[in-house]
Every structure is written in structure tokens, then in C-alpha cells.
């Protein structure tokens, strides 16, 4: 089992899937920070004073995580961060559904044409945890900068 999910091609696929999702998710938020701040506010989870700081920083952290996964640099750290963000998103969406608030997800677009919060958005984030954990738990990062520049570093996903 462990051998199977340690396949370098699976690791490469995991990285590319997560990279595509995180980079794509960051673009619209970076372009419209004011609208994303409203989305954050509508979730009513953070203290109001911290909402804007969160709205400024999160899209760039998503972008950075996505780019590092794409390049395969600091793969394990980026994978850990992606799992952490997904768990935070799952908690936020779950809390929204639990309280029955009617808001847009703000996941990939900040437009009001964007999807309403729903069980599907929650399931998507849960599904994305699989490639995150695959990268965290397994050894071989596939074709990556870690293999080229940090082959012996535990920050890469190289076997010991």
C-alpha cells in the first residue's frame, strides 16, 4: 500500500493537481482584494479587525504554495501548508453550512455569480486532502527542483 502511493508519477500528479487548484483559486482574489475582504466578512468567523489582513495575505499564500508545488521546491512544507489551508477551508465551509448562512463560496471567484456554499464545495476540499496527504506521507516527489537541488534535504520528499 505504502509502496503504491509512493510512486513518483502519483506524486507528480498530486503536485500538479494541487498547484493548478491553488494557483487558479488565488488569481481572482488577488485581482479583487476588496471583494474578497467582503467574502471573508460574510463568513463571520474572524474578528472584524483581522478580516482585511487575512484577505490581503491568504491569496498570495495560496499562490506561493501553488507555485512551490508546481516547481517541486520545499515540497513537503508546501504539501503540509496545502493540507492545513484545506482543513481551515473545510472548517469554514462546514461552519457556514451548519449555521445555514446563504453566502457565495469565494473559493475560485469573488463574483456573486460564483457558487453558493454547498456540500459539493465541502466535498471538493475533502477530496483535495488526498493528494496533500499523499505528498506528506510518501517519499518520492517525482520530477522536481527538490530532487535537483535539495536531494538529501528532509524538506523535499526524498527517501531517507
Amino acid at each position: 500500500m505504502f509502496r503504491t502511493i509512493s510512486n513518483p508519477w502519483i506524486s507528480l500528479a498530486s503536485r500538479l493537481i494541487l498547484a493548478a487548484v491553488f494557483i487558479y483559486a488565488s488569481i481572482d482574489k488577488i485581482a479583487h482584494p476588496d471583494l474578497f475582504a467582503e467574502v471573508v466578512h460574510n463568513y463571520r468567523i474572524l474578528p472584524i479587525a483581522t478580516e482585511n489582513l487575512f484577505a490581503m495575505a491568504l491569496p498570495w499564500i495560496e499562490l506561493g504554495t501553488g507555485v512551490l508545488l508546481l516547481l517541486g521546491l520545499l515540497t513537503r512544507s508546501a504539501a503540509l501548508l496545502s493540507a492545513f489551508m484545506l482543513i481551515v477551508f473545510i472548517a469554514a465551509i462546514g461552519a457556514g453550512l451548519w449555521r445555514g448562512i446563504d453566502i457565495t463560496c469565494g473559493c475560485f471567484t469573488v463574483s456573486s455569480e460564483g457558487r453558493q456554499l454547498g456540500w459539493l464545495t465541502l466535498l471538493e476540499d475533502v477530496a483535495l486532502l488526498l493528494p496533500s496527504f499523499q505528498l506528506l506521507l510518501t517519499a518520492h516527489p517525482g520530477i522536481s527542483l527538490d530532487r535537483r537541488y535539495l536531494p538529501a534535504s528532509p524538506l523535499s520528499a526524498e527517501p531517507r
Binding site: 495575505a57 498570495w60 506561493g64 513537503r76 501548508l81
Partner: peptide
């Protein structure tokens, strides 16, 4: 710990870019 430190580094660097 090194993996966590790397993740914190990513948050600090890219969070700062956002600010």
C-alpha cells in the same frame, strides 16, 4: 520540525508580499 518551519517560512514570505 523542518517541514513545519518551511511551511511557516512560506506563510511569512508570501503573506508579506500580500501586505
Amino acid at each position: 520540525k523542518a517541514t513545519i518551519a518551511g511551511a511557516v517560512l512560506i506563510v511569512c514570505v508570501f503573506g508579506s508580499i500580500g501586505l
